[in-house]
Design a protein around this nucleic acid. Structure first.
Lengths: 237, 237
DNA sequence: TAGAATTTGTTCGTATGTATG
DNA sequence: CCATACATACGAACAAATTCT
């Protein structure tokens, strides 16, 4: 590579790498070449490459992990929390193809935590639905929803057809429901969740705990959603 | 320990451990005895203890880490995001003693990201303030605020006195400012942040990125706050 | 499970060019 | 012209984290 004069070498390297990423020579999520390889390619010192990489990391274009390498940042999806937008709408509006796959469903007895949030008695039957939400075939979140079985018997079949809880609720006369609260924490994923999200166990996830209520204020769903923090960012406006 | 009849042994163990935690025999953040030690103490099989521990983990009373042991969960502080509440108010309302310590302040040039969010030109001078927010002497968050230097020259001295940006803003004629947006992600902390939060580098943190604007909609602060996810939970209502 | 190899992070030192007063 | 400060660039050695064998 030829160096223009008037512009520092590391800035030219930064521009070149940015072009490579834009041209998908290095694709989102993929590993970049090592600093050694890059310093050979550009025929400069490793520090010069590092300065370019640091600039890219600051601009959130790449993510550098000690001992592993640098990775091209996936496109981060802003996931709004406080309004009534649904997953499929959010993903569609970003020109990406949404999908929601049912992983499993079970009927079991409410644990104390579940019972408190759904305002039912511990031990009452509840429906547990595990699903994966994807955009363009890439998993973004694992949803873990719990609903009172007494009120929503048979909802799983409708969910399977419509792939949407919103639609399924309509069959039970619930045309509007709102989010009562959302609690957000950061965790490391279990092996199961990491597998479903197709991410490493060492990368953290965003976990939201929430309760949805119907027009009367009665809880209809207690949910627990795990987002890949590499591909999703929660947004409060 | 004597077993009551009519109640399963693991539930009695669960109750006993809960009592121990309530009496602070095991204190928040501390390591619990190993499963082996507990099974000896209660003279039961290790699996019986595991069942009790699993129940406590489900109830979020303890946190189990493979290869390290079980730890009593710290009291989690719900940190509301969407209203105008300030840190000191939030902590005070939970009957805990708030404190905000200035770690460092610097004047440097705005990076492209900073410039975009503050709506200034890249390279313009900005004030960078690093602070730690604590409750009862335990660090909860590390704040990283960036302000335009042109408008807020000398604000650091006022911040040092009042320990509050809200108060410092008043000296500059800003009596009201609002949060334009908050973006939330999960990350692993850098060594520096982990040290300031007095937590392990392997435990994830919640990072909020936000912009505050004055009454005219002009950005006054671009901030980046890192919360310990073991002691803080973000709350959106 | 233990150690070697790989890869990034940090800290020295050295040298050069450029802007400023 | 000089002194100073600052950014750039290179080199070497070691620390820390991860992966491979």
């Amino acid at each position: 590579m030829e160096w223009e004069k008037g512009l520092s070498i590391w800035k030219q390297i930064e521009r070149q790498l940015l072009r490579d990423i834009a041209m998908e020579v290095f694709k989102p999520g993929e590993k970049m070449p090592t600093e050694m390889e890059l310093s050979k390619r550009f025929d400069v010192n490793r520090h010069t490459v590092r300065q370019a990489m640091a600039a890219l990391a600051e601009a959130n274009v790449v993510r550098v992990e000690q001992g592993r390498g640098a990775f091209v940042q996936e496109q981060v999806l802003d996931y709004p929390l406080n309004n009534r937008t649904r997953f499929s709408q959010i993903v569609s509006s970003r020109h990406r193809l949404p999908d929601k796959r049912l992983i499993s469903d079970k009927i079991l007895k409410a644990s104390p935590t579940v019972a408190r949030n759904l305002k039912i008695k511990p031990g009452e039957k509840v429906i547990e639905i595990l699903s994966v939400s994807e955009a363009d075939g890439v998993p973004l979140a694992v949803g873990h929803a719990v609903l009172p079985e007494k009120r929503f018997r048979g909802i799983v079949d409708i969910f399977k057809e419509t792939k949407s809880l919103t639609e399924a609720f309509k069959e039970f006369g619930i045309y509007d429901y709102t989010r009562k609260f959302t609690k957000i924490s950061a965790q490391l994923p279990s092996g199961k969740i990491a597998g479903l999200l197709k991410q490493q166990k060492s990368r953290p996830i965003l976990v939201t705990e929430s309760v949805d209520v119907d027009a009367n204020g009665t809880p209809v769903e207690y949910g627990n959603t795990s987002f890949t923090s590499d591909r999703v960012q929660l947004l409060v406006e």
